[in-house]
């Protein structure tokens, strides 16, 4: 564990999500090492670091997706609103309904229409919605994902007809439709062109009004543009964590400085 990452950032308010001594393994090899991090509510926290530093794995521990990979395991704790998500009384399926996730590549369900994609998370929950309620929630999710105007006349279309950027915004709409507490974005723009990237970045700024957003990115400019807090991971360890402005202008760790100035990674 490194002393230099200790930082009061984000501690002024109760964190929405918090990890405590989190380790993640693939077949016994640690990919995430003893990470303790706090994610402030309705803020954007960026997780940066070179490829293979464990940032995606860390993200996937936060909605218990990591443990579904064969040979994967987790130790340590993650708290959502102060409650352990790895505790015996937490149902991972229920948990995942409270924590939305968007992946590197757009993953619309190809057998469902655009409308049904957005409604998918609503239909799978324990609550039953009426047709009118569904219509309303789907529209709201699409509006919040800044996609409504582009798809409102083609809700019954196949989502694969959309552009890559639109597909990714559709996936964001699908993730936020059930109104989760936290939104996890795993390199959401890495497969998009500059215009698509711009749209998603603007959207992240909007989304933090309502959601706690955690975004993994290998794009440093993106982290600087969209996030309030930044965590720098290297070889599975947390090197530094703090307000984004501080991390990018006055990093404490020489390794953070070397990374953000482009000397490695």
């Amino acid at each position: 564990m490194l002393a230099e990452h200790v930082s009061p950032a984000g501690a002024e308010i109760d964190p929405k999500l918090r990890t405590d001594g989190l380790w993640a393994y693939f077949n016994g090899t640690a990919a995430v090492k003893d990470i303790s991090l706090q994610f402030a509510p309705k803020r954007v926290t960026a997780i940066i670091g070179p490829s293979g530093c464990g940032k995606s794995t860390l993200l996937r521990c936060l909605n218990r997706l990591h443990e579904l990979v064969e040979g994967a395991s987790v130790s340590g704790e993650v708290y959502l609103d102060g409650r352990s998500i790895y505790g015996p009384d937490t149902d991972p399926v229920e948990l995942r309904r409270k924590i939305g996730m968007v992946f590197q590549r757009p993953t619309p369900f190809p057998t469902m229409t655009i409308y049904d994609n957005v409604a998918a998370g609503l239909k799978v929950g324990s609550r039953r919605y009426s047709r009118a309620e569904l219509d309303e929630l789907v529209e709201k999710a699409l509006r919040d994902a800044a996609l409504w105007d582009e798809v409102k006349d083609r809700l019954r279309d196949n989502p694969l007809r959309l552009s890559g950027g639109q597909q990714q915004r559709l996936c964001i709409a699908r993730a936020i439709a059930p109104r989760p507490d936290v939104l996890l974005l795993d390199e959401p723009t890495s497969s998009l062109d500059p215009a698509g990237t711009q749209a998603i970045e603007d959207l992240i700024q909007e989304l933090k009004r309502q959601y706690t957003v955690i975004v993994v990115t290998h794009n440093l400019q993106q982290a600087a543009r969209v996030s309030d807090y930044t965590a720098f991971l290297y070889l599975g360890e947390l090197v530094e964590f703090g307000p984004t402005a501080t991390i990018f202008t006055r990093p404490r760790s020489p390794r953070t400085e070397a990374y953000i100035t482009g000397r490695f990674g």
């Binding site: 909605n63 997706l65 399926v93 995942r96 992946f103 993953t107 190809p110 998918a120 799978v124 929950g125």
Partner: peptide, 13 residues
Amino acid sequence: GALREAALALGYP
């Protein structure tokens, strides 16, 4: 596999 993961992340059993 990404489709399966997307469904699981959405809270599908």
